[in-house]
Structure formats: structure tokens, C-alpha cells
Design a protein around this nucleic acid. Sequence first.
RNA 1: GUCCCCAUCGUCUAGCCUGGCCCAGGACACCGGCCUUUCACGCCGGCGACGCGGGUUCGAAUCCCGCUGGGGACGCCA
Length: 466
Amino acid sequence: MSVKVRFAPSPTGFLHIGGVRTALFNWLFARNHGGKFVLRIEDTDLSRSTEESIQEILESMRWLGLDWDEGPFRQTERQEIYSQKVEQLLKAGKAYPCFCTPEELDKKRSEAQKAGLKPKYDGTCRDRSDIPEGAPSVIRFKAPLEGSVVVDDLLRGKVVFDITELDDLIIQRTDGTPTYNFVVVVDDSEMGITHVIRGDDHLSNTPRQCLLYDALDFQRPQFSHISMILGQDKTRLSKRHGATSALAYRDMGYLPDAMINYLARLGWSHGDQEIFSREELIKHFSFDSVNTSAAIFDADKLSWVNEQYIQSTPPEELAKHLEPHLVKTGVLQEGHGLSPQEIAKVVPCLNQRAKTLVEMAEKSAFFFRKEVEFDEKAKNKFLTDESKPLLEKVVAGLTALDEFSAENIETLFKKIVEEEGLKLGKLAQPIRVALTGTTVSPGIYDVVLLLGKEECLKRLGNVINS
RNA sequence: GUCCCCAUCGUCUAGCCUGGCCCAGGACACCGGCCUUUCACGCCGGCGACGCGGGUUCGAAUCCCGCUGGGGACGCCA
């Protein structure tokens, strides 16, 4: 039987890192098995779901390259199916209307909790024969009263729950819309999902869902509850821990492949390997090497992975990711008209010096900006009257160069240094400041070469004449 | 509180299933050194963990039990 999995986020906010990892593990599993990956939007909570959120989720998935084969399905468009299934349970005597009000339930819940008991529905309406005319009601699932449910989890083995721990859960709200535990069962079954891969915060929902599978005569899928991602303080990852939305990382200058690589290694491993191409990830992914313990999100490690990808991504490809940041940081104007090939020119000399694309964009300003912006301190320290003769020598030397190559530039600099009896730094720094405006830049020969003869002579000339 | 899951360096992890090769390996971070025209990259070295207690066994990080600790669930949220 071929594999079919799904990622089913609820559109009540942005797609966060934890969700991305769940999506990723599903995606990797599907791709590894040559199966299908379905995207389903769990928007049954009308009051909290937003269209904006759906769009952001889709954008995040696309940015990360997590392509889906079916969907996105929206549960709000499948109401008929759910109503029909509720009806089926009602007819079979496996569900019943409940007239208890939310207030009554809240009260009972808090009383039970106070008494040290597990808060669960007390079954008031379970065998009720009188039907209050016109009173609003929800529909509850009539769960078995005793026995146990064995959830067979691919990662954790058999997990046993006592049915007395469970209660009659609401499957349809007063307004007729279905609730999570019910739709998830109906959809996973209707869509032919073979493996339910989700966060382990859902593990305790699973026995209820299993009962529903049974009541509906559905075959249970294979469950895999992966561990959750925690923040530095070991609590569930949330806004308190800083950036948690996928797109926030895009905006901070992380590469989608780096994000994927980092997240894949959180809970999964393949020997000692740290860096994986997508193909390798797909090829090696297996639940045999997935860890069951929770993992803490480590921004430092992510940063390192990002650095590795910045170093190894081909310049032209990197340029495509870099471009939006060049615009956003104001280094380039919108509609600059530069091609990826042109932008890619700065990459080789900067990809060893930037941890993020934002950093790279900022550091490439010297190349893209027409006017050099001088750092006052640097200017005062290095562009002195004593340094001007040096600059003039470089101008003369550069002008005389037939072939503008790294080798020739280096030879020229070394020659000047020797003639003047200076350390290379004494020459390199003033030149660096004159050409870039700052004391920090890529290697000086790289800068000269990148800027080109004409531009170098222009910038040096400006300083000499100022 | 009740139920469920989890437990190797600060962090991600290898090893655990199929006990000995592990006085526990790799990576990030940190510290020190080297390289060097700035900043980085890189290279070399260092620090650093099997939560605790009982078993089982000739032998346990590996198997069993208990404890402790952490996380999650207990909604007309998902």
C-alpha cells in the first residue's frame, strides 16, 4: 500500500517552527516512500481562523519548498461530510445530544479539579430521554465505559489508555460545526491517510480518536507522535522565546534549505552527518532514526547551519535569495534592474563573512552603492595627509596595469609596500577605507578586483582630491 | 490533581532494540593557539554528559523496577 500523509495546521496564526518540523517530517516520510503529501487546513474554529493566516501558511510552505500533492483542503468546505457522519453515529446510538450549557460544564470542571479528580464530562445527558424543546444542544460521542485503548505508535510502541480516563467528547458544536477530534478522524479516513505524523501533544487525544475510528468502522492509520520543540527554558516554544514564525526567519536572512536542514536534525540523525542536501534528507529519512525526546530550539546552531549554506550555495542561486534583502536594507532601489548574475558578483568575496543574508546585504553596500559612505572614525584615522602619497602610488600603479587581475594587483601592492618599507596593513587599510568607506571589508585585492579599475581610480581620486 | 510521553556534555545528537569494541564519539556554543592586510573563514587543542537508587549479569549508557526531574493532555481550541 502506498504511503499518504498530511500536514494539518489550524489557521489561527502564522506557521511556527514546530509546525514546520511536523510538516517536514511528514514531507520527508512521503518523499522517502514515494507517497503523497496532503495539505489540509483545519479551520473548523470559525472564530479564530483567518484567511490571512491561511495565506501565510501557504507562503511559508512554498518558501521552505515543502510542496504538497493534494489540497490545500479546507474543512469548512467539507461540512456535509461531517454532518453526515454525525448523523450516522446518532442513528447508531453512538452519539447523543447534550443540553448542558458551557457555564454548567465549566462549573463542574473546576469543581472536579478542586476535588483532585480528572475533569471529565459526568454523563448528565448520556441517557437522557426528555428532549428540552428548542434548547440548543451539542452532539457528544457515546464512548464505551470501560476497557482500554491501545494506541500503536510507530515511535513509542503500544501505549495503553484506560477508557475510564476518557469521557464523552463533543463532536458537534451548538452551531452545527464539528470539532477537532471528530473531523481529524473523518478526514484522515476519508482522505486515505495511512500515517498520521504529528506532535506528541496529540498523543493523549489519540485514544479518543481511536474510539471514533472504531465507532465509525474506519480502519485506524499508523500513528507516529514526534517530540515537540521547546524553548531555551524547556517550555513549549512560543512567542516568548523570540522569533518562532517561519517567515520571520526568511526575513532575518536565513536560507530555506538551512532551516530545513536544521529542523530535520532536531530529533532525527544519520550518524554524525550535520549537513544534508534535500536529496540526502529524503534518501536517509526514517523513523528508525527519529528521537522521541523533546528538543530545544538552538538559534546558534541554526545560525551555523545557515552559514554553511551561505558558503556552499552557488553564487547565482544565492543571489536570488539575497536580492530581496538588498532592497529591504536599502542597498539597492526597488526596480534596480540588476540580474542575478550581476548580483552574484559580490557573493564569492562575502560568503565567508556573513551568517545571514541580511548581513551579506549590508556588507555588500560598498559594491552596489554609487557613493562611498565614509565612517568618520575610519576616515580620520586612515585617510590622512601621510596616506595620500600612498594612494597616489596605487592610482599610478593601477592605471599602468594592462591586465586587471588579482595576481597583478597583489604584486603591485607588495611592490609599493617594499619600496616604502611598510607593513601591508599600512597600505591596505587606507585603500580599504578609500574604496569602501570602512575598515572592515573583504580581502583588499578582492575589493579592488570586484570594483574594477575604473571604479577604483574614481574612488581613490575622490579621496585624493578631497 | 489524574493520565500519557520523555531522560547521554550548556544545546543538537551517536551508541541503547541485538549488554563487553564506550574510563562514551561527532556537531553547535564557549575557552586557548595558529593563519592573517581589516573582519571573517579555516586549522589545531581544551572544557564538558550516561539524573538518582536498587536489581539482573562475569560484565550495563545499554535489560528490569522504583524515585526524581522535565514535557504534554485533561475546552462547544487545534
